[in-house]
Amino acid sequence: MSARLGELVHRNGGLAGYNYAYMDESAKREVRRGLLKAISLPGHQVPFASREMPVARGWGSGGLQITLSVIEPSDTVKVFDQGSDASMNAIALRDLISRTCEVPTTTDPREATLIQTRHRIPEDPLVEGQVMVFQVPIADPLRRVAPRMTVSRRLHAERDYSAIWLYLYEDHARLGRSSFASAHPVEVEDRYIMTPSPIPRHDCPRLNDAPFISLFGAGREAIVYAVPPYTKVRPLSFEDRPFEIERFATGCALCGATDTYLTEVDGDANAQLVCSDTDRCARRRTR
């Protein structure tokens, strides 16, 4: 396997001297081993040997290591950042992946087999066989309530989640709502509480019973976790205080969509709400 992939490196001007997909085969295998365990235990945080990457830790090195470990020459890759395919981070990662892996890239999530993302899930419905790779800054949903990892690991093991429920109680007592704007904790398959990475609340319900695979990588913290297809993912909420997604007064100022997650652009006087998923927004406008 490694020899066959290794031959691919020099075709189409790949990076000379580097292995296929940048990482060496044993490093990729180590990541995949972690991912197999993560998929077997949905929502469970699995430590892995996070490598130095040609991007700084905190800039998507966890997601990148997952992408490079599972990628094959037949894949089509989309990389986007906060809904945008044109952000610096997305461009840099896409460039690295396409040059070291010899794969075509796309901005259309419907064409992609592998989608690396920072903080969004594409608005287009994804299908079976697609793989989402999330860049995760903070892997532990209990970080706010149990900063010590030794404590937090025990709490996860014993399923002792009263601290995070207390956090939610305090939110409702003080604010009348949950204070999680993004990265709203979710309960996976009635077992682990997991952070879905800082996706907006809009995207949380879309992880539930999803046909695609979700792989999460935190490079700085050296943690991977996963949600396999068709897995129960429930945002944490009290039975009588249902989870709510963001509501917007208007639709997208560009494409008019009313069912998407919107972000404010052009600040101050010219502020307007537009789709955060720029690719879908552009497609709607040209149609």
Partner: peptide, 27 residues
Amino acid sequence: LLMDVTAGGNVAERMLGAGWRRYDAVR
């Protein structure tokens, strides 16, 4: 007690730990 948590929250914590999931009932 958790000193930066409200009095109500400190009492609620035990009920939440015991599996209560209805906010109004806990409160």
